[in-house]
């Protein structure tokens, strides 16, 4: 593998048949490839998310990240789009599922697609990765410190969000969870609860909670970056994807 890729903006058909912008990267080598949908975090489809898409492509995956804010803010800068969507209460769960499903269909339609598709999300996207995996025919899901998969948002919470406890029996693929021991959302108690719930539902999952790391330990340009956890986490991600998508 020479890691050569092409990357750029594409259009995918999302929830309700809406055409939304997405960022797509693909290996140049002409071999059958699995796909990965990258769910961006609350700050939007930003440079960091695009770097993740390209990293997955360099590793041999068709990778795409749908712009979940495209409807409210077509063509806007990611931070402006994030502010506009936040002011309207966030992305509805039903729409998220439709957009991830559309992105997965886009990947399966690539000429060299193997047909297997996984999903990965960070922060708010971590919860949304689990949400998507409960609704869509995916083969792998990675939740990086997603809050409110279990637990309850604070009273008076202004954004339309609920936990996913009731959906967990419908989880359709193996789940890799990567968390920080110093994180409060999700807290170690919450990820332990999620671990127990998935075990009770006989759902395949693999969790790792890193000591000395809090939220967003993968974010290389934030003070929260923890190189040891991030490097180990990337290794676990690619081992997990190799097992679930390439077997």
């Amino acid at each position: 593998m020479d890691e050569a890729i092409r990357a750029g903006t594409v259009e995918v058909v999302g929830h309700g048949g809406d055409r939304i912008q997405a960022y797509f990267a693909a290996p140049l080598e002409s071999e059958s490839r699995p796909g990965m949908v990258v769910i961006h975090h609350m700050p939007g489809l930003d440079r960091q998310t695009k770097e993740t898409v390209r990293r997955l492509a360099a590793q041999g995956y068709f990778a795409v990240s749908p712009n979940l804010y495209w409807r409210e803010a077509p063509g806007a800068e990611p931070d402006d789009a994030a502010a506009a969507v936040r002011a309207r209460g966030g992305v509805p769960d039903e729409r998220l599922v439709g957009d991830v499903g559309g992105a997965a269909d886009f990947l399966r339609a690539q000429p060299l697609a193997s047909g297997k598709v996984g999903v990965i999300g960070y922060c708010s996207g971590g919860r949304q990765a689990v949400l998507a995996a409960c609704h869509l025919p995916l083969q792998a899901a990675v939740d990086c410190y997603g809050a409110f998969v279990v637990g309850h948002p604070p009273e008076g919470f202004p954004m339309a969000i609920s936990n996913l406890v009731g959906l967990l029996p419908r989880l359709r693929c193996p789940l890799l969870g990567l968390f920080g021991e110093e994180d409060q959302h999700p807290s170690p108690a919450e990820t332990s609860e999620l671990d127990s719930l998935l075990t009770s539902h006989a759902k395949e999952h693999d969790f790792r909670t890193y000591p000395g790391a809090g939220h967003a330990f993968f974010a290389v340009d934030r003070p929260s970056y923890r190189p040891e956890a991030a490097v180990d986490g990337w290794g676990r991600i690619f081992a997990f994807l190799g097992r679930t998508l390439e077997g």
């Binding site: 409210e72 800068e77 502010a83 506009a84 809090g214 003070p223 929260s224």
Partner: peptide, 25 residues
């Protein structure tokens, strides 16, 4: 999380005019 400030968390304020589009901020 901030988009620009070099901190994990900041108190963020957006003053908006949604009628003028997302960049009106």
């Amino acid at each position: 999380h901030p988009a620009h400030a070099p901190d994990d968390h900041t108190l963020n304020v957006d003053l908006l005019n949604p009628d003028l589009g997302p960049a009106a901020r």
